[in-house]
């Protein structure tokens, strides 16, 4: 609102269902000198929270169903003092893409200077992106673990079936992978399927 003093810090509300991500965004925003009014998850009465806190900016997870609620504040309640508009810089088409890719959307109180809000968004976007990075790393680690389990299982079955050592079983799998131009985990999967079928028939 225009009544806010010129140098007052931008007051931010964060709507995010991921507590750890929300926490890191909050910490980084505070460190950058912004005021974080509240951090809420979806389905906790966004309209009420906005009326209570009157934030200058709302940062919201793209996957929150509350986005349509926020957008309605620009339209249905156009006479209310809490009219929010979407931050969508017309001269920067890349911004929308980046924001969507990072998984975040920003709304500001009507009358707030968008230039003042930009640093807030940059801080939040960086945290959202690093959270995405962490999740990808986690996914990769999980896949690697699953692969290793599969390979171990295939080796065990081969050792039993062919009465060979672990080392020989490993070499056999590696050779099969090279001959068939397949990844080790895929070969392991085939071996498990084939040998398990044999087991059942026995």
């Amino acid at each position: 609102m225009k009544s806010a003093p010129q140098n007052a810090p931008i007051r931010v509300m964060l709507v995010d269902d991921h507590p750890s991500r929300a926490q890191s965004v909050e910490e980084h925003l505070k460190a950058a000198g912004f005021e974080v009014l509240s951090v809420i998850s979806s389905a906790t009465g966004l309209l009420f929270q906005i009326e209570q806190h009157r934030p200058d900016v709302v940062l919201i997870d793209l996957q929150s169903p509350d986005r349509d609620v926020l957008e309605s504040l620009a339209i249905v309640n156009r006479h209310s003092p809490t009219a929010m508009v979407m931050f969508a810089e017309e001269d920067d088409p890349d911004y929308i893409r980046q924001a969507v890719e990072a998984g975040i959307s920003t709304y500001l109180m009507e009358g707030i200077n968008p230039a003042k809000v930009k640093p807030v968004i940059e801080v939040a976007m960086a945290q959202f992106k690093s959270f995405q990075g962490l999740r990808q790393e986690l996914d990769t680690a999980r896949t690697q673990l699953q692969d290793r389990t599969l390979i171990e299982k295939a080796k065990g079955l081969l050792m039993l079936q062919k009465r060979i050592s672990e080392n020989e079983a490993h070499q056999l799998l590696t050779r099969l992978a090279m001959d068939n131009n397949q990844r080790l985990r895929d070969v392991a999967q085939t071996v498990i399927a084939t040998l398990s079928a044999l087991e059942i028939r026995k």
Binding site: L62, Q63, S64, P65, D66, R67, D68, L70, E71, I96, R97, V100, S105
Partner: peptide, 15 residues
Amino acid sequence: EVSWANLRDKLVIGD
């Protein structure tokens, strides 16, 4: 998708 805003934005950016 979880919101009409998401459908619209993802459509507009080509996602």
